[in-house]
């Protein structure tokens, strides 16, 4: 294949794919929107009131409830993106043959993949908005820059969704997700969501900062507290670049799978 697959995306077509998922979710909103938010809402209470009451000291200069609130906010969105582009996408691709039907129309494979990945990222951003309402009730959102957090989560979720999608396009059995979910969910524990990365052994610190999700957590927390600096800009750049790279890989994998 020559050139970037990303350049083959027709965003009008990608939006048609996005709209298909939106329509389905609108129909199933009771099952799709509220239950998945119960667990993060309770975890904020558990971490903030429960574990947080045991932690008297501030963590990286902020109360633990604020620290962990930012972490849960990001992790909730990212988990949603992972699930959408693993099991959700696999069902549509293999069991429902939805991709086959879509590719029988003028929509190309790059636009199809982009629509799916951006849908997962949109769901992540939407979830983060709802979690932010809960955080607002706890008086955790201190900076007006917090309004940018869903944007950061959406871009970060695009990258992670693309990684998940690349894996989905590469596997032959749904059971192979055990490996991916094991690695992906483990990485969510070392990305600075629940405790500062500098508590980790040095080698894991390097690994953690190499993962774009750590930057998504850190940048979101900085927006929440209003403590942006040049490091934040580097993190933003890394989130964008990694999302583009992952997107390119995902679309190439999908293209290879769908055109044989």
């Amino acid at each position: 294949m020559s050139g970037s697959t990303l350049l083959q995306i027709d965003f009008f077509d990608a939006f048609a794919v996005w709209r298909r998922n939106y329509d389905v979710n609108l129909r199933l909103w009771k099952a799709e929107v509220l239950p998945p938010l119960l667990e993060p809402a309770v975890s904020i209470l558990a971490f903030g009131w429960g574990i947080g009451s045991l932690i008297a000291a501030k963590v990286t200069g902020i109360p633990y409830l604020m620290f962990v609130g930012a972490g849960i906010l990001v992790v909730t969105g990212l988990v949603r993106a992972i699930l959408e582009c693993t099991y959700g996408a696999y069902f549509r691709m293999v069991y429902q043959s939805t991709y086959d039907a879509i590719l029988s129309t003028p929509i190309g494979v790059a636009s199809l993949g982009a629509g799916e990945i951006l849908w997962a990222a949109s769901k992540a951003a939407f979830d983060s908005l709802l979690i932010m309402v809960i955080l607002l009730l706890f008086d955790i959102l201190h900076s007006p820059m917090s309004v940018l957090i869903p944007v950061v989560i959406m871009v970060g979720a695009t990258g992670l969704a693309a990684v998940a999608f690349a894996y989905t396009a590469s596997i032959s059995s749904i059971y192979q997700y055990n490996y991916f979910i094991g690695v992906a969910f483990s990485s969510l524990w070392i990305c600075g969501a629940y405790f500062p990365v500098d508590r980790l052994p040095l080698v894991l610190q390097y690994l953690s900062w190499a993962l774009p999700i750590t930057s998504v957590v850190d940048l979101s927390r900085d927006l929440m507290t209003g403590r942006l600096d040049s490091w934040s800009m580097l993190e933003a750049a890394w989130i964008i670049v990694s999302a583009l790279l992952a997107g390119e890989i995902a679309l190439r994998r999908l293209s290879k799978r769908m055109y044989q």
Partner: peptide, 15 residues
């Protein structure tokens, strides 16, 4: 855009 396709397998959208 010019072709209508009736595939061998059912790929209607069950959602």
């Amino acid at each position: 855009a010019l072709v209508g396709i009736v595939p061998q397998e059912n790929n209607l959208d069950p959602d």
